[in-house]
Computed example of a mutant assay.
Amino acid sequence: MRSCVKAGTVKRVVLTSSTAAISSRPLEGDGHVLDEDSWSDVDYLRATKSGTWVRTAYPASKVLAEKAAMAFAEEKGLSLVTVCPVVVVGGAPATNVKTSVPEVLSLLSGDDDMVDNLELIEKASGSIPLVHIDDVCRAEIFAAEEATSGRYIVCTLNTTAVALAHFLAAKYPQYEINDDRIGHLPEKPRVSIWSDKLIKEGFEYKYKNLDEIYDDLVVYGRTLGLLKY
């Protein structure tokens, strides 16, 4: 951002953050709806250091980075837009994946460690919010060229591990899905992360439901060898 100021020709900076900077806060009960005005609670995260890195340090770092960028942009007169994606999945050129793809395919692959990670995602977010990578890329371009200002959540849908298990068992009966591991989790999201601001400004998602997301994701999982067939 200092280089952008020095150049004097940059019209807009797009910062990619995460909804980890939005949803990591103490929320009692169910039915919560979070939007761009919501911020993860850094003090709360610092007080719960016993949690995993992804549940404490990661969201705290995202909040601090966003707020530092916003303060710098305001001081220097830069146009800054922040994109906050949820759990990103979908096919990519990478053949060795360290992203959320193995977690979201874990109910099909039967990878117990990845199922544990899927449960951690739900516990940290209050749901399993999903978006396809193609839509994140398109949202980045939209943020650069057409968005007005501020933060933009990029989220297609909010689901749960239990709801995913039911959906996947019906769509892919050839896989033996063991839902005993997640049976204690709620069937409906405790927290929903809304992407209304992006849509109201004219953005349209390409992948709009679980069917479309998993059609692509399962093919990618087979290419990676995460799924046998």
Rank of each mutant, 00 (worst) to 15 (best):
F72Q: 07
F72G: 05
A73I: 01
A73V: 08
E74P: 09
E75R: 15
E75F: 00
G77W: 06
G77M: 04
G77F: 06
G77I: 06
L78I: 01
L78V: 04
L78C: 01
L78Y: 07
L78F: 08
S79M: 11
L80C: 07
L80K: 03
V81P: 00
V81Y: 03
V81D: 08
V81L: 01
T82D: 08
T82S: 10
T82Q: 05
V83I: 13
V83H: 04
V83E: 05
V83Q: 06
C84Q: 13
C84S: 10
P85R: 01
V86Y: 08
V86N: 09
V87S: 12
V87P: 00
V87Y: 12
V87L: 13
V87I: 15
V88F: 07
V88C: 04
V89D: 04
V89Q: 05
V89G: 00
V89C: 03
G90S: 01
G90M: 08
G90A: 07
G90Y: 05
G91P: 10
G91V: 00
G91A: 13
A92R: 12
A92K: 14
A92T: 14
P93Y: 03
P93S: 01
P93M: 07
P93G: 02
A94G: 00
A94Q: 11
A94S: 14
A94Y: 11
T95A: 12
T95H: 10
T95K: 15
N96W: 14
N96D: 15
N96G: 05
V97W: 02
V97Q: 09
K98R: 12
K98T: 13
K98S: 14
T99W: 07
T99G: 14
T99H: 11
T99K: 10
T99C: 10
S100Y: 12
V101W: 04
V101C: 09
V101R: 03
V101E: 01
V101Q: 09
V101F: 06
P102C: 02
P102V: 04
V104S: 07
L105R: 01
L105F: 08
L105D: 09
